[in-house]
Design a binder for these strands. Structure first.
Lengths: 263, 263
DNA sequence: CAGGAGTTACTGGTCTGGCCAGTAATGAGA
DNA sequence: TCTCATTACTGGCCAGACCAGTAACTCCTG
């Protein structure tokens, strides 16, 4: 009840001073979001911008550094054909934000794996129900390459594995899921690598993994989203369970299998 | 097959020049991630850092602007007690990244709503299966306040609604899901507001919404995750369907209801 | 005439040194 | 003892300079 405050009274917002560079960042961001600046186009040079924005060069540089850190533009020294170039979207920044989240929220590996199970499970479900013929062909092809890569060692296998998952992610027709997937995969990889260096170079492990992927693919072909999602979740916990404390792993196993019906 | 390249040969990475400010950003980021710098602690003043990093003030300022833009630190003019202060985690930056993603990937509202259905559905599932007694009490309490807020107009109602969803998100025990939820909610709100200004001030709408939330809560109490998740998804499409083209809305309705079994 | 190498006119990367404005602790006055 | 001005810091900006890359241009050579 405390929050009575305003029903339709003017609603005020905390007023922070707006620094010069923030104003610049905002203007350029807006222009990009509005589509007035498209990837590939170039900003004016720094010295030109000092004139347009009526600020000094250090200030426009601060703005550019911020834009660059969020991946919107990229500057290159000595590029006489113009200023910073507007970049196409890249999930890098999203991954950085989410990595920060994981670190600062003290999420542990189990949390992230659970999250990935949700994201990848949903992705696989959608891939099963939404895929086109062409995408199906690509998935089949990717799996064929996966099988072939076993002989070339676990590094090649892991590359082929990523590709396989990417074809699935694309068939789900959701850019958000695709990026979340990439990001979560990266975060998990980070955590694992920092925990202990593992080498799944055992050929048997690769064969198992490949066989499991084949089952997922079978469910996708049958457009059986439920089964595909469940198998994908089970694969994940099978794969990462050994890095988790036994109790969490057991619970996640239940979460993966006994719960066909979440979303 | 083209990717043969290296089996276990040294794997090279594209070499970009590392600018001075990037090195500073990285060092401070690492210190924060490693926990050597905790929220509330302060960095040295800019002039001190010029000495420690052996660079000029504009350079350390660029680094600070980048760190500030990702929400890790905050500077305040005239604060004689030290330099920039390390901030606790905030999802703002994640929301910004995801907003950028939505804009640049040309995801439309339907994509985002589908994404939210997945995230919020999973959250609700976990809240049903994982909640403690105390959290349950909080959810019940939040729903009581929601019902009471109807009389106070749709602004109060929408605030109470957010609170209700937050109690659910907390009961799911997943920081990642909670933040994704917040972020997705914000993004949807952005898109809707830019599409058309809607006022669901009709008391009937609020009563409906409240009744639906009650059904979700019932499923949570019964620890029936499947039903809770399905109801949550259906609520979402009921709520946002009118902003979507009819065909997409229909498909999402199917996605919400007929698919108990994703993850 | 064509092609390659040096010149040149830009670019961003960085530094120096400075001024102003805000903040908070300090110390002097009531 | 309390209040208020002083002071010594802070960050926010600016001006101007130098260096180092890049790419276009030009000129010289074959």
């Amino acid at each position: 009840m405390q929050h009575e405050a305003s029903a339709d009274r003017p609603t005020f917002i905390p007023a922070r001073p707006v620094r010069a560079y923030e104003s610049i960042v905002r203007q350029i961001e807006d222009a990009i979001y509005r589509g007035e600046l498209r990837p590939g186009q170039r900003l004016p040079s720094e010295r030109e911008m000092t004139a347009q924005f009526a600020v000094s060069r250090p200030t426009v540089r601060e703005a550019l550094r911020v834009l660059e850190s969020s991946g919107l533009v990229r500057s290159r020294q000595g590029d006489a054909t113009g200023g910073a170039k507007v970049q196409p979207f890249s999930p890098d920044n999203l991954r950085r934000s989410m990595t920060a989240l994981v670190h600062l929220e003290q999420s542990d590996l189990a949390d992230v794996v659970q999250f990935r199970m949700i994201i990848e499970g949903s992705t696989t479900y959608l891939a099963a129900t939404e895929h086109t013929e062409e995408e199906l062909a690509r998935m089949l092809d990717a799996h064929k390459r996966l099988a072939a890569s076993i002989a070339r060692g676990h590094e090649a296998f892991s590359r082929a594995d990523v590709e396989f998952h990417q074809t699935i992610a694309e068939a789900a027709h959701s850019g958000l899921l695709r990026v979340c997937n990439e990001v979560a995969r990266g975060v998990v990889a980070n955590l694992i690598e920092s925990k202990l260096s593992f080498t799944s170079d055992s050929e048997q492990l690769m064969r198992d993994s490949c066989a499991r992927h084949e089952r997922v693919l079978g469910a996708i072909v049958a457009r059986d989203g439920e089964t595909a999602a469940r198998l994908a979740r089970e694969d994940m916990i099978d794969h990462f369970g050994r890095f988790l404390p036994e109790e969490r792993a057991a619970r996640l196993r239940v979460f993966a299998s006994r719960v066909p019906p979440i979303l």
